[in-house]
Design a protein around this nucleic acid. Structure first.
Lengths: 212, 212, 212, 212
DNA sequence: AATGAATGAGAGTTCATTCAT
DNA sequence: TATGAATGAACTCTCATTCAT
């Protein structure tokens, strides 16, 4: 995920192990049912050790959210940067988002807890992703590839679509109960969702469309 | 909100008071920090009284979610049913949704907790609202008022847009910290969001668009 | 069990129903898990009604113990009074005791709770039964049918044998877990227990026996 | 009491203190009125500490019963093993039983609660003691020192006699109210009880006695 | 005579956090 | 650096009892 060049000290390794365990336990049990004992047991360290690296339970939570946010954005940028056209980039970004969700259902399960656990963390998480969309849209708009629409609002709309489609088809699966196995968004759903987005963003004929 | 004409019995009134208090406390503190003591104090009844009407904390939670769901759908249907055209109906429905959100921020704050609290409740909540969108879209599509798109996917997309725009502009307000005062979606944001949606759903030019 | 001659008033009937229900519920659940609600539900009356007839939960308990005590003594006296010889009377009395236990396992389960629930009730219960044994033994001793032994001590010994054999073979059954079905003491066990008692009480040759 | 030679760790000492306190509190108040708070206060530890060593209130109870059982059997075996003749051994065993009872009234008060608290614990307790009696009787019988009687039934009879005499004269004392001070069984009562038992078990004259 | 809604003290249990080792 | 025993406040839930109807 990152380009580890320097060797980790012993302490850093312990810290990293706790962080990984915390993500796993938070994802499985949610914030409140994830006790420090469970996290430290999963990490294979003592309870006291936890407090050598994190000031509180909330602090790990924040860091886990931060971490997930960094990783999902990285995945999206990585994917879309290799695309040729704007539309291809958009599809690649969404596909990366859904894939990340499928591989890390923690993204949802953890992030959606944030509202009450760590005020502001949720907003920060969404805002950062939205900024990526917005900047891309603004640039594309300047190039005439996107219709006349406020990039900020459009970006949030994309965020909402990604979030809900990810929840509906990745997290819940085709017919699966919540918590069950997750898989990627079915191709036809992905296509339909992208069609929806493309039409919303397509340039031209703005005047007529507004009237319909 | 409801059309109950018969007078409530004493027990029903107590139950209703607890339910109202629970919604308030859940919205303010979240599921886990909303203790039974806080709920019963807010309702002005004894702790034991709570258990005369609800079997557990989770049970009230489910009922609060159920209740909010019923009310927001009612508000949306009410609003859109008085509109003339499909587009007007759509705008009215969304406006009602945002207004409800502004008046009952509990909708977000409570519902988003549901994932870990009451598995299935969250899915049920979204699914019910989406069914309304989907049926409306399918009907409009049959009348040629909506482009060629899977109503199911489009309905979930609308749900996502409503949710995230509501969260961003209603719950968080223009520049306000989470938990702060809420107001309606600013008119220009509302217009932009509706433009986004209208373009996505507009009929015509399906063949070319589909190729992208 | 008793010779009801006068018709009961409505109140008396209600009271009796509560008492019967209480015995059943106490026997099944024990004193502490037998709630007033469960008793009143079993009796088919309201909770408040209970307190019209009994001052407290402990009071019904005492009365239930009292009632059981009266009935078991009645059964034993009834049975032994129809016997010809002393030994036959003894066997008949024990048999009645075991039969009562088998039909009313409540006797054990309730009485053994008494120690902490209602101090003195347990002692009173045992003492009353023992008095019956003791008087019988004293009388038989005067007639030369019982050896030279303190009737008080011997009576308590009989009580202990009856209690433990009843628990072992009636309450627990041949191989059954506690709480399971109960039946009478197996004939061979009954015979052995009676043999044990007969030898202990048999008159004559006191001097030699003591030396063995 | 035990032959542990290795020093206890800190944790073991805490555990032992809780166990001792639990025995005391259970004996004084009974299972239900013995709250965790009372036990931990008596032990001088925090409430949470209790759950580091015992999974539940019932678990300590079981262990206390187990512990008492082990100790009383140890005392009885110890005492009777030093006796010369069978009869002396019997007397020594019973005497040890009564002495233990006098010093640890908890034996009764706790064990008799077991029926509803921990099904099976009561049966196990009695069964273990009875097994000791039974094996002793069987051996003596083989040596011709005990009459022709089923050792199992006879052993349970002894158990019953010990239990009830202990309760009557040790727990309740000569004229004392339950819960009051306890002392040993008066010598004349002890002698009479032993006489009762000796006659019941004495060999010889089996044929005539059996006819009764 | 009868009800059952209401109460609140108290139960068992959990867990984030501290700190002596 | 690492530990895990210890803590106590806070939690959800129960139930004997009261009292207005």
């Amino acid at each position: 995920m990152s380009t580890i060049s320097q060797p980790m000290t012993k302490g850093e390794r312990t810290r990293a192990r706790i962080l990984v365990a915390a993500e796993r336990v938070f994802a499985e049990l949610g914030f409140h049912d994830a006790s420090i004992v469970k996290i430290t047991e999963a990490a294979g360290v003592g309870q006291g050790t936890f407090y050598l690296y994190f000031a509180s339970k909330i602090e790990v939570f924040d860091e886990v959210v931060e971490d997930l946010n960094r990783r999902v954005r990285h995945a999206m940028i990585e994917a879309s940067s290799q695309a040729g056209t704007r539309i291809e980039a958009e599809r690649a970004g969404f596909r990366a988002f859904f894939e990340f969700t499928a591989e890390h259902p923690a993204l949802y399960r953890i992030v959606r807890q944030a509202e009450f656990v760590s005020p502001g963390a949720l907003r920060l998480h969404y805002t950062r992703i939205v900024e990526g969309y917005r900047d891309g849209l603004a640039k594309a708009q300047a190039a005439g590839e996107v219709g006349d629409i406020d990039p900020e609002v459009a970006a949030w709309a994309l965020m909402g679509i990604g979030e809900i489609v990810g929840m509906r088809w990745v997290l819940w699966g085709p017919d699966v109960a919540p918590g069950g196995p997750t898989s990627a968004v079915p191709p036809e759903v992905f296509d339909q969702a992208m069609t929806f987005i493309e039409r919303a963003l397509a340039p031209g004929r703005t005047e007529e469309e507004g009237r319909s």
